[in-house]
């Protein structure tokens, strides 16, 4: 039996020089940089938004049914934990929204230069902070104003 058809090697030639080649560097090897951070955050915020979509359906179904069902979902949303989740959701939304536009611009061929990529990345973060702050200021102002 030669090394090349040894089942323990999974059919690969373990004694081949192929195996001495460097492997593709993984996450922990890289220095953190904004291009990598924005990419990872795009996926992470997308997952948060999907979880939020579950809450959206719960809310819409509760509005349609009304009565106690609506009261129960409204209680979850207005609970501090619910408000904390909505806050997180709004950050995820504004991030995914702005960075998604950045992705669409890349798809259109704009902004691939390193300089523009960094500038658009920082713009996304600035947008998230401003949009989240304005949204919650308006929302709390509305509740505080006895709406």
């Amino acid at each position: 039996m030669t090394a090349s058809n040894n089942p323990a090697s999974g059919g690969y030639q373990t004694d081949s020089p192929r195996f001495d080649r460097p492997l593709s560097p993984h996450l922990q090897v890289y220095r953190w940089q904004i291009t990598m951070l924005t990419s990872i955050l795009h996926r992470a915020t997308g997952i948060v938004l999907s979880v939020g979509a579950l809450l959206l359906t719960c809310w819409l179904v509760a509005v349609a049914i009304g009565g106690e069902h609506y009261a129960r979902v409204a209680a979850i949303i207005t609970h501090p934990a619910g408000q904390a989740f909505l806050f997180l959701w709004s950050i995820a939304f504004f991030y995914h929204f702005a960075n998604g536009i950045r992705h669409l611009l890349w798809d259109a061929g704009w902004g691939f230069e390193i300089k523009r990529m960094y500038a658009s990345g920082y713009t996304v973060f600035a947008f998230v902070v401003a949009a989240t702050a304005i949204t919650w200021w308006l929302a709390w102002d509305k509740i505080g104003g006895g709406a």
């Binding site: 509005v63 009304g66 609506y70 009261a71 409204a74 709004s90 939304f93 929204f97 998604g100 536009i101 992705h103 669409l104 949204t135 308006l138 929302a139 709390w140 509305k142 509740i143 709406a147």
Partner: peptide
């Protein structure tokens, strides 16, 4: 869908803010 969600998403968040504290 991403392109469609740009205006739809903005409108949705705006709507949720206007509905803050509203009853059934």
């Amino acid at each position: 869908t991403a392109l469609a969600l740009i205006p739809l998403g903005l409108w949705f968040v705006y709507s949720i803010v206007t509905l803050a504290g509203a009853d059934h």
